[in-house]
């Protein structure tokens, strides 16, 4: 009985995670410039792979596997914002400008050029 419920839950988590990954890919393809694309990729992409990792934790009835899956989720949540912030900061500092429509720009005075 518990295994059946866990299988249903894991299936739903897998579907939602895959749909989040698809959403991130569509966002990367459709959004206008680097910074908005990064907004789609870093959040929805992390959500997609994190949900599939949680699906493993649900379906495996083994303490070591559950622990490793949760550690993987925490690792993903720690590293993804760091890399996205680093890449967008490097791109902005070097001079890749955002497309029009940006109202507030707090980094304007820090740019090198």
């Amino acid at each position: 009985m518990v295994e059946q419920i866990a299988a249903y839950l894991a299936g739903i988590l897998l579907l939602v995670g895959a749909l989040f990954s698809l959403l991130a890919a569509i966002g990367i393809l459709r959004l206008p410039d680097l910074y908005t694309r990064m907004h789609a990729a870093s959040k929805a992409g992390t959500m997609g792979s994190g949900l599939t990792l949680i699906a493993i934790a649900v379906v495996a009835f083994d303490g070591a596997v559950i622990l490793r899956a949760l550690v993987g989720v925490v690792f993903l949540l720690l590293t993804s914002p760091v890399s996205a912030h680093l890449l967008s900061r490097a791109a902005y500092m070097v001079g890749y400008s955002p497309s029009g429509g940006m109202k507030i720009n707090d980094l304007k005075n820090y740019r090198e050029d």
Binding site: L14, A25, I28, R37, G45, S80, L87
Partner: peptide, 17 residues
């Protein structure tokens, strides 16, 4: 580079499935 990062993320999803 952002696309490559996204590919890695999708690859993690693949491996989990």
């Amino acid at each position: 580079i952002l696309g490559l990062d996204m590919l890695v993320s999708i690859g993690i999803g693949y491996i989990c499935v």
